[in-house]
Nucleic acid binder design. Structure first.
Lengths: 339, 339
DNA sequence: GTGAAAGCGCTAACAG
DNA sequence: CTGTTAGCGCTTTCAC
């Protein structure tokens, strides 16, 4: 351990530069010299020192993933597992290292922020955000380091982001229910201070309007993207006698279905359901949920690719990428009953 | 952007050395000079360059978390969320950066391994392992970088690790069932090639032996730490008519309980249950599971602290830390029926 | 207390 | 094609 270019150069009887060229696969090295150097590298198990390389090249080949726990679903929502998976995968493929920053509270933020924004450590940052007024968002934008927001931010001028087309996805979901002939279509939404929630709600309304169906506030029940939340939201919704429900997440759909069954009703015969996410979760599988599939892993990978683009080709103009979704028909929507 | 020590020094009318001392909070700087320098640093928003600091100090203040997906529960098991949370938290507190390596397949491994083991990038590594014959384990040990295994490894000579006392935990679980007077106590285990599984199984057997109860192979049913797996394992176990079951994870317990109910039996009146983990999961909450609580977040934090100890004080002798668990009594064990 | 100077290990002109 | 040289930005002796 502790080998340097110098050591390899000496052993191979060449100069540092030549070894450097070989290490970096550059041309302009005679084949037999290259072979000789490679042999020494092999034999010694030499690896170039990352810090030195970073310093001289002004590139760390590291990107940061910042997850504020205002997005406090980190614990519970497998969304983050898949997002992280996608990001990690893309980092691997592009030979980037992934630095992971989980920011819980204000104190964390103060301690961690300098590391995040310190030059030299990170080539760029992916921020998983979407919460209204996230203070991290402004600080990161101000810190002037290449930045990609995973999820459309509230103030999007000049910032690059990637998002799923939640509005269209919601329209697709509700259209599916409308197409099956259901009249009173309810929604179980997330917290309204959340941009994803707002988009899906917009889509829900848009689909109803397109179909000339009435919008009833009472048919929208606010959940919190947890199973419990879905259960209670459904309990509040039940008196409105919805014939079908669009739940803004599969997890909430499961909770809502439980509430329906506890009330002595059947799914989909009495209340039909469509969810959102389609992450392969153990606890959901048996429900045969009709749902909207988000390409979460792809989403993570694209975020990395966008960030690398920013790093290599400059941050202007800001990049945008909106990803599509897919309707997955299973049994809770009652489509099979109609045939 | 692009400020260097030199710039600050010039603006403050001192030398680089002095600025460096101020930045690093060293003594031997006159108070008024310190103030002056700090003011310039404030005003300019200067941050020292991480790469340069790494290079000269030979310390990256970065640790790597390596998760092989042989441990392919990453997707589905919230255990990793909590472990990661604990690790991230401890990194924050100690001013370390966390680099995250998710290694899926052989190809990933080949691509990523050089980055993991390259000197300069990482001060040390936490490996989440426990799978029999994990090739990463040997490579990492050989790479001679400070290493902590999260979970007791199969070959433990000379390597530092942290683990939960799974044997005692399982004894505690089964003793609880025995104490409630149950006779035929079954187990739903994980895959046998897994060291955690083996330990819990050993504990299960030990408790029965201590109580002079017979060991029946047929009462141990192999699951895979998923809900489905628990369901099917229970279906196979049901003909043995167990009066109580120790499931090696809460998720499997939930699947098993479903199987019991689908068979027209009641929990805990016909079959009592105790699980393992006690991670706060949405989909489990309503079951009121009696279980063994693992301190997963603590576990992650301790792993980081152990690694930092290794980095700072040398890797010899190897460190060991075995953490205790807690019995959480709720309703599935039937304890309340006995009163 | 403070500054000058050396050097961490590497890359990238620039000569030859 | 290959070697020499000059830094990247910082920490750290060592003088003063």
């Amino acid at each position: 351990m502790g080998l340097t270019l110098e050591d390899i150069a000496r052993q191979a009887g060449v100069s540092r530069s030549t070894v450097s060229r070989v290490v970096n696969g550059q041309p302009n090295v005679k084949e037999n010299v290259r072979k000789r150097v490679q042999k020494v590298i092999q034999a010694t198990g030499y690896h170039p020192n990352a810090a030195a390389r970073m310093l001289v090249s002004q590139r760390s080949w590291t990107i940061g993933l910042v997850i504020p726990r205002t997005v406090n679903y980190f614990f519970r929502d497998p969304f983050f597992n898949y997002l992280t998976e996608g990001i990690a995968q893309a980092c691997n493929q592009n030979n980037y290292t992934l630095a992971f920053f989980l920011i819980g509270n204000k104190e964390d933020e103060e301690k961690t922020f300098p590391r995040v924004s310190r030059r030299g450590l990170l080539d760029g940052i992916i921020l998983q955000s979407g919460q209204l007024g996230d203070p991290l968002f402004d600080r990161l934008v101000a810190s002037n380091i290449p930045l990609v927001i995973a999820g459309r931010p509230f103030h999007a001028e000049g910032v690059s982001y990637i998002d799923v087309d939640n509005v269209s996805a919601a329209v697709m979901a509700v259209n599916h229910l409308i197409g099956l002939g259901y009249q009173r279509i309810g929604a179980i939404s997330g917290p309204f201070n959340n941009i994803v929630t707002q988009d899906r709600r917009d889509g829900y309304i848009k689909a109803l309007v397109n179909a000339n169906m009435p919008i009833e506030e009472a048919l929208i029940s606010e959940g919190d993207y947890t199973e419990q939340g879905g259960y209670h939201a459904m309990q509040r919704l039940l008196p409105q006698k919805p014939r079908a429900v669009f739940a803004f997440s599969d997890v909430m759909a499961v909770g809502a279905i439980r509430a329906v069954r506890d009330a002595g009703l059947r799914v989909p015969e009495d209340v039909a359901f469509i969810g959102f996410d389609d992450l392969p979760m153990d606890s959901i599988q048996s429900y045969q949920l009709t749902t909207i599939r988000q390409p979460v892993i792809q989403f993570g990978m694209k975020a990395v690719e966008m960030l690398i683009d920013l790093v290599q080709n400059g941050e202007k103009p800001a990049r945008r990428l909106i990803m599509g979704t897919e309707l997955i028909i299973r049994s809770t929507c009652g489509a099979s009953l109609k045939k």
